[in-house]
Design a protein around this nucleic acid. Structure first.
Length: 467
RNA sequence: UCCGACUUAGCUCAGUCGGUAGAGCAGGCGGCUGUUAACCGCCGGGUCGCUGGUUCAAGUCCAGCAGUCGGAGCCA
């Protein structure tokens, strides 16, 4: 007797007539006076459940089968047959239904065979993977993660695990979470009265990483093509549908490359992983498409794969924004950062497609971005996607030591903690570039979700670290 | 963090002009049926987010707090 995945059964990989077992959780039960019960069982391996037909001749029919409610766990052995009913091609005629775990109090089980709000499901994050939506999100998320690794591996990139704890506060991208083992009730002090971090675990201040980029650049300048894919932390008090305090970020870095190569890579990469989701998780994406009234989920992904991304210089984007009749809350001037309303106009209304905005003013971008020949802009690029805004941010890195020093001075950065980073320009520097992609934002885009908190199993946001 | 909205049964919601609460679903029981989030009948189920105030009387009006959601800022 072999235990089979429901995904394999429904994909007709298991021959009709064979005797098999399935294991999973009850979605619904319907009883027929014809002397049998229909039990829909899901094992999470695919979107659809398998219909179990349990005849009342089973010795535990009255005691167990009739007690089954949504959420109960079962192991069912039987014969796979062509379905007599409509709605499914095959079903499992049970010889034995073993209940592994009843739902103690069915009235208290939060998940009902009906639509729940996503807000409610967030409150039951430990049970929501059993819902249609979060089962689907989980499978799509996995599919995308696998596609990320596959894409890079097949193209000769090496996965580099940059540290999660960083003792340098020079990553420069926003508020960081402090990592400390000091007794918070009895902090050691320096003679000046400041907290004495020399007595802390690492002998200095330490934080959770906000980006692996600087660290992975060193590996890029040795292995040529590398990427990071791991947890990233931002302590910003931002309460939006697009931000998490803990999220996963993908950061490829390529040597002997310029900004155009970076943009080409980002576009090709996005199209690859979107294609993977479309072909491997069609069932889940069709579910998202069917329940989403405002976004044509499948068409959006399809178009993103098929159509070339629009590319526009920042300077031209500003001209487009200035030339439109649409009134913006923030006035558009060269030199300012694009506001959400501007990004949305460009990607959703003007281009109606993902757009790569390139060559931003140097003053509004990070110190490590490469200064262009005009000396006013840097070789940066953001990819804006309809519905979510910035999904990728990248740049060619400043590989010339004198210019890097100049920009660090402009940003008033202490060069001492960056000596190792400056070394990379001192010892065999090469042009290189890379980008960062927020993994959850990708999941949001593919699934057509509204809130990034539904794209990760246990979301961490300001004031919330439940489960 | 700022602006706005919301918070009523396990879930989704209604509740008019201030007079101490209803529906659907879920649950229990019964009926019916190769059923499809089945259907029909009956039953149980409430500290109306919390604290205070106004009032003879507050789910309803006012204030504070909390939580959630939407938008903004910051960003991936």
């Amino acid at each position: 007797m072999s235990v089979v995945r429901i995904a394999d059964v429904l994909a007709n990989k298991v021959a009709v007539g064979s005797k098999v077992s399935v294991q999973g959780w009850v979605r619904t039960r319907r009883d027929s006076k014809a002397g049998l019960s229909f039990v829909h069982v899901s094992d999470g391996s695919c979107f659809n459940p398998l219909q179990i037909v349990a005849p009342n001749t089973l010795e535990n029919y009255a005691t167990d089968v009739m007690r089954l409610s949504t959420g109960a766990s079962v192991s069912v052995t039987g014969t796979l047959v062509a379905s007599q009913g409509k709605g499914q091609s095959v079903e499992l005629h049970a010889d034995a239904v073993t209940v592994l775990g009843f739902v103690d109090d069915p009235e208290k089980y939060p998940l009902q065979p009906k639509e729940h709000t996503l807000e409610f499901l967030r409150e039951v994050a430990h049970l929501r993977p059993r819902s249609n939506t979060f089962g689907a999100v989980s499978r799509v998320r996995h599919c995308l993660a696998q596609a990320v690794h596959r894409y890079f591996h097949e193209r000769g990139f090496f996965w580099v695990n940059t540290p999660i704890i960083t003792a340098s506060d020079c990553e420069g991208a926003g508020q960081m979470f402090r990592v400390s083992t000091l007794d918070q009730m009895n902090l050691p002090r320096t003679p000046e009265g400041k907290i004495d971090y020399s007595q802390d675990f690492f002998g200095k201040e330490a934080y959770l990483t906000v980006s692996g980029q600087l660290a992975v650049e060193a590996y890029c300048l040795a292995l040529s093509k590398v990427y990071t894919f791991g947890p990233t932390f931002r302590a910003e008090n931002s309460n939006t549908a697009r931000h998490l305090a803990e999220f996963w970020m993908i950061e490829p870095e390529i040597a002997f490359a310029a900004l155009k190569d970076d943009a080409d890579l980002a576009e090709d990469f996005l199209k690859y992983v979107l294609s993977a989701a479309l072909s491997e998780r069609r069932d889940d994406l069709e579910f998202f498409a069917s329940r989403n009234k405002t976004v044509p989920v499948l068409e959006r992904v399809q178009q993103c794969i098929e159509k070339p991304f629009q590319r526009v210089d920042y300077t031209d984007a500003v001209k487009i924004l200035q030339g439109t009749k649409k009134k913006f809350e923030f006035k558009v001037e060269w030199g300012m950062d694009l506001q959400t309303e501007h990004e949305r106009f460009l990607t959703e209304q003007h281009f109606g497609a993902p757009v790569i905005v390139m060559n931003y003013p140097e003053k509004i971008k990070s110190f490590y971005m490469r200064l262009n020949d005009d000396e006013k802009t840097v070789a940066a690029m953001d990819i804006l996607a309809p519905g979510i805004g910035e999904i990728v941010g990248g740049s060619q890195r400043e590989e010339r030591l004198d210019l890097l020093d100049k920009r660090m001075a402009e940003f008033e950065l202490d060069p001492r903690p960056y000596e190792w980073y400056r070394d990379l320009r001192r010892f065999g520097t090469v042009p290189h570039a890379g980008f960062g992609l927020g993994f959850e934002r990708l999941v949001v885009y593919v699934c057509g979700l509204d809130n990034i908190r539904d794209a990760i199993p246990y979301p961490r946001t300001p004031g919330s670290a439940a489960f």
